[in-house]
């Protein structure tokens, strides 16, 4: 973040267009490079949550699964805040993180 970005945010102003351009590019390139469409990503997100939720209780409000790209390498970054561990893992058949 640059000083200008900081002041813009402080004053509730729109960010400099270069900042917006950089952010939009980073996002679109992460998708271009991995060749994953938003639907596939969403499906992957659901399945990841399903598996992880069997072992721990996740704070669903704070979950963030997204593509990030740096130095031409794309990574799937999942941030899944844990509320508490489950005393006993749920059965694999239990469907969805809500179970």
């Amino acid at each position: 973040m640059t000083l200008r970005d900081f002041i813009d945010r402080l004053l509730g102003r729109q960010a400099a267009s270069a900042t917006t351009a950089r952010q939009r590019l980073q996002l679109v390139l992460a998708h271009d490079r991995s060749d994953l469409n938003p639907e596939l990503l969403e499906q992957m997100r659901r399945e990841i949550l399903e598996v992880v939720s069997r072992y721990v209780e996740i704070d669903l409000e704070e979950v963030d699964v997204s593509l990030e790209t740096e130095e031409r390498v794309t990574a799937l970054v999942a941030n899944l805040p844990i509320k508490r561990a489950r005393p006993k893992p749920l059965e694999a058949s239990a469907t969805g993180p809500a179970a």
């Binding site: 400099a16 267009s17 270069a18 900042t19 351009a21 031409r72």
Partner: peptide, 18 residues
């Protein structure tokens, strides 16, 4: 425009494209 941050900076482009 670059100095006013209304155009992608040189480092933005070289970083993104590596």
């Amino acid at each position: 425009m670059m100095a006013n941050q209304e155009m992608l900076a040189v480092s933005d482009v070289t970083d993104i494209l590596a």
